[in-house]
Computed example of a mutant assay.
Amino acid sequence: MAGVLDSVNQRTQLVGQNRLELLLFRLRGQQLYGINVFKVKEVLQCPPLNEIPGRSSVVRGVAHIRGGTIPILDMNQAIGRKPLDNLAECFVIITEYNRTQQGFLVSGVERIVNMNWSDIHPPPSGAGKAHYLTAVTEVEQKLVEIVDVEKILAEVAPVNEQISAGVVADGISERVVQKHVLIVDDSNIARKQIQRVVESMGIRTTLKKDGREAMEYLQSMQEQGLNPLEELIMIISDIEMPEMDGYTFTAELRANSSLSQMYVVLHTSLSGVFNAAMVKKVGADDFLAKFHPDELAKRVNDRVLSISGEDLLGDAE
């Protein structure tokens, strides 16, 4: 797979075009799976693994890669299936999610395909709530399943969702009793994490699964005679989502005269220095890497204080 992830600059050209690149891989059998290339740092043959005491059974061990120690998770076992065998013949996809690096053990890596987010669809409604998919698509008439990596990581290493004392100003919810926060994310786990943080501040939330659904919701508000700018405190949106990604969603808001002033924070597990430039390109108000409850709460706190005309530093202290 040498050279498969050559150019960050080339990939950033997809921003605002509602496009993505998927790295296709296999676990057991012929089923194809996909992961957004933006989250992938490297693909390599599985290196020697060292076991660690007290580890989750999903973590097959740790590997020493380029001067660092990275946990290696068995992707097949993480989604409730048998562990992969013949590790020497397997591959590891090194990723960066939520400010940490981890490797996912897979049986084989295929290739990268360039796709439009409109061709990426939510999982079938009959799949239930226990599945590990955020989306599905089709490549050359073959079904590709996109795994909910955030769900896997939340199960293997649950994150703290508690807000530290002093982060939120006293009586913050009383300033916006009639307003709410729109949360847009294709991962059920991520939506619930954000929801719990915001609602623990006493602020109401509305949840949508992707940019297209969120845009339709805003338009339906307008059809009912409501002004989203007055009803919403802010929008907290993921970036990679089926149907319409967060970049395109933000760009469409900015191109709509009645919605162009909407306050948008892109909140994503995508990491890397290139994100700041992407946020500026599509016109989002802020960017926050997942998932840190204090930083998320502070963004909401500061936005509430701003729209209520109060001094941020004075009230936050």
Rank of each mutant, 00 (worst) to 15 (best):
Q162G: 05
K179T: 11
L32H: 11
I35R: 02
E240N: 07
T12K: 07
L20Y: 13
L105K: 03
A78I: 09
T69L: 08
Q261A: 15
L22H: 05
M215W: 04
R55H: 03
D186K: 11
G126S: 12
D170T: 09
N76P: 08
L226I: 11
G202Y: 07
V37Y: 03
K281E: 08
S237L: 04
G108N: 12
Q31S: 15
V168F: 06
D311M: 00
N301E: 07
V159Y: 08
D148H: 03
P122E: 02
N116P: 00
M201H: 00
S107Y: 04
I79Q: 12
K192E: 15
V139R: 09
G246I: 01
G67M: 02
I146Q: 03
N301S: 01
A78T: 06
Q219W: 04
A157H: 01
V15W: 10
V106K: 07
D6S: 13
K280G: 05
D210R: 12
L105E: 02
F25C: 10
E145G: 11
G309P: 03
V197A: 07
I307F: 04
Y97R: 13
L270I: 04
N76C: 10
M115Q: 14
L133F: 09
D311L: 14
L14I: 01
Q77G: 01
I163G: 12
R99M: 12
G171I: 07
E199M: 10
A190E: 02
A251M: 15
C90H: 04
I93Y: 01
E243A: 12
S271G: 14
S118G: 02
A63V: 03
P53R: 09
P71G: 06
G80V: 13
M1A: 15
D286E: 13
A154K: 12
H64F: 14
T134I: 10
D294M: 07
P48A: 02
F91N: 15
V109T: 01
N227E: 15
M115H: 04
R111Q: 13
R254A: 13
R303I: 08
I72Y: 02
W117Q: 11
I112F: 05
E42V: 05
V198E: 12
P293L: 00
R19P: 11
L133V: 00
N275H: 11
Q219H: 13
F287A: 04
V136W: 00
R81F: 07
D238L: 01
M234W: 05
V139L: 07
Q13L: 15
I146D: 04
V37S: 03
A255S: 14
Q101W: 08
A284Q: 01
P71I: 07
T250G: 05
L143C: 06
E140R: 10
T248D: 03
L296A: 04
K290S: 02
R196G: 01
L313V: 11
L105C: 10
R196C: 00
N9F: 13
P71M: 12
R303F: 11
A130V: 06
N301V: 08
E110G: 05
D186L: 03
D186E: 09
E252A: 08
Q141T: 14
E51M: 13
T137E: 13
C46P: 03
M115V: 15
S187A: 03
R191K: 14
M75W: 10
N227C: 09
S187M: 07
V184Q: 08
R191P: 01
M115I: 11
D315E: 12
T248C: 05
R55W: 06
L105A: 05
E295N: 04
